[in-house]
Design a protein around this nucleic acid. Structure first.
Lengths: 351, 351
DNA sequence: TGAAGGTCGTGAATCGATTCACGGCGTTTC
DNA sequence: GAAACGCCGTGAATCGATTCACGACCTTCA
């Protein structure tokens, strides 16, 4: 592509070179310049070189607005996420971005912060940008505006959302299985009074369903209490920990499954500050395996969730390179055991 | 003029409503529809209502490509960052995004992963998108392409970059002062064999300069060793920790200042796994105050860096709402003392 | 009553890249 | 040697929103 600033200052300040300028400098028509980029084989090698040289000299970059106006869609894909502070979404974005870049595409990231109004504004923005597709990773329900967009020609893929009753294209890890892994792990350690803490989101509900199944399948009876929260952040986790600390020993849990790692880290911190020993008094399992899970005050046992791979797959599906069905079973969750759920604390950490 | 659609059957699949469609349905000219949005006072309230109703019925969203082609620039601002895994950039993006949204603008986020080729590709993309301005938060040097962009009419603001010898518009926290705060804190605790671990980035160099000044000003002599690394990630921090563990007691440090929190968390983890007690054997100070600093295996003392505020200010500067000079002294670093540098460990954490 | 001035809607030109339809020119083939 | 064909470059139409210049219509005041 074009590089660097202009050598001999061929352009006035503030104006960008156009196909017309390039054509004039190369001594060809505007059509030829355009074909040079869109159908390189259509122009002879000699002319192509001349055109590219002229373009380079002028610092020609093209005007995507004009291009889009003509062809009807842009090279960009839209990614709608609901939080920037959760590393899961950063990872998802990074995976999508790398895959998009490999195909000469770009990702427009929009963060709604779980605000439906901003979600709507961003979807409108995506449509006005004529993105060629949208990756939506909503925490909550499927934004109804997406359907309108699709009917008007912009496809979407839901990422990390339960493939529930809806019939939209969607890819996600097996959250039910992940929840099962987490709870089965706690039960195998002899934990019997479990609590699930999580938000009211479809994919979290699936994790909870897995937890319930594990308990139903357990050889010995175990209890499960469910604490519902609004947002799954570390701050909320700390708040939940404080309420737990007020409980009597009889109602205090010996195992917690958290809806995600952020929440788990908050819980962990709140519990430890309150004098609870983890994992001696209580085992804790998070979800997602964010990078910081390993650096926690007690390294966090968690379920690994392949966010980057999901993002990459979603891009491939939107670009028509991959079909949704082909991803089945590709994003299996995995139990990562660390100190927060060990039967005994690791000797090296607290000598 | 394009043929108007049938009122009760809004649009054919795949096609979007245009001003022409809205105009036809509302029984006005295309110009009137446009003025309804761009200069609402120019059309009478009555007509305005009729136009908006028609637009609503058709799901009209507008075509930003056409708009941009005409007016020459877009409502979007470009944000160029070099890493998505560092929460500092997520915070910066969130701050910029919120401020942009408040002014009806949008942020296009581009992550170069420190790859100059991708950086160039994204700057070209921004130019082809005709963003009305660019926020650049490079880790390394100022990308030369930015200058070409500016000469062709797209302004930029550097964020978090040292206002060094260059004369580009730039805002940042006072990294020198932050480094000074960190080192002075360690020295005040009696630490005398300090190590600074950091990457070769301009803003990190400033932090180092502050550390050096603190040592020069110290009442008692202290030594400083500098360990240079390529990228400031947790993984690299762990690797550095492993090499430190091989040292003899005589050359082992009693205080470390890390170039950022990610690096500090890696160092912390590596040292503790290796049997070093923090802060008894060694005090550690990070930089940035990311959320996870507080949840670390030993909560991390760090320098708070107002990333979100920087992002918001950069947006205001690009929009001409604020001048660079007015931000002077607004982004002061702040020492946040946690367990990783306390003279004695906090009683509640290890009862 | 008629001229002046203001309000508000409209036709038409415009932005820059793409692509269709055309045709000039050189080569091949019988 | 002429017809047929392929290669490759070009003029012109096109996408949809914006905005200038114009003028229809209404109000106001001498």
């Amino acid at each position: 592509m074009t590089t660097g600033p202009v050598p001999n200052q061929p352009r006035a300040e503030g104006s960008a070179a156009t196909v017309g300028d390039v054509a004039a400098l190369a001594g060809v028509s505007r059509a030829t310049v355009s074909y040079t980029y869109t159908q390189p084989n259509r122009v002879s090698p000699d002319l192509r070189r001349r055109v590219l040289a002229a373009a380079d000299e002028l610092g020609y970059v093209g005007n995507d607005a004009a291009r889009r106006l003509r062809v009807g869609h842009s090279l960009a894909l839209g990614l709608l996420i609901s939080s920037m502070s959760n590393p899961v979404y950063a990872e998802l974005a990074a995976g999508a971005e790398a895959e998009a870049a490999a195909h000469g595409r770009f990702i427009l990231v929009a963060n709604s912060d779980e605000d439906p109004a901003r979600e709507r504004a961003y979807l409108n923005f995506f449509e006005s940008q004529q993105v060629s597709g949208i990756l939506a990773a909503p925490v909550g329900d499927v934004p109804p505006e997406l359907l309108g967009l699709r009917s008007r020609g912009t496809p979407f893929v839901l990422v990390g959302v339960a493939p529930g009753p809806h019939s939209y294209p969607a890819i996600s890890g097996d959250n039910e299985r992940g929840g099962h892994l987490a709870a089965a792990h706690l039960l195998a350690q002899g934990r019997r009074r479990l609590i699930f803490v999580g938000g009211a989101h479809p994919h979290v509900d699936l994790r909870l369903a897995g937890v319930k199944r594990a308990i139903a399948e357990a050889a010995e009876p175990a209890s499960l209490e469910i604490i519902r929260i609004q947002v799954q952040t570390a701050k909320v986790g700390e708040a939940v920990a404080r309420t737990l600390l007020r409980r009597s020993a009889a109602t205090f849990p010996d195992g917690i499954v958290a809806g995600n790692d952020l929440l788990a880290l908050g819980l962990l911190h709140g519990l430890i500050v309150g004098g609870i020993r983890v994992p001696e008094d209580l085992s804790l399992v998070g979800y997602d395996d964010i990078e910081f899970a390993d650096f926690a005050i007690v390294p966090l046992t968690t379920i690994r969730h392949p966010s980057a791979a999901l993002g990459a797959s979603a891009v491939r599906i939107l670009l028509g390179i991959e079909r949704e069905e082909d991803t089945k079973g590709r994003f299996e969750p995995e139990l990562v055991i660390r100190s927060s759920s060990l039967p005994t604390p690791p000797p090296s950490v607290h000598p």
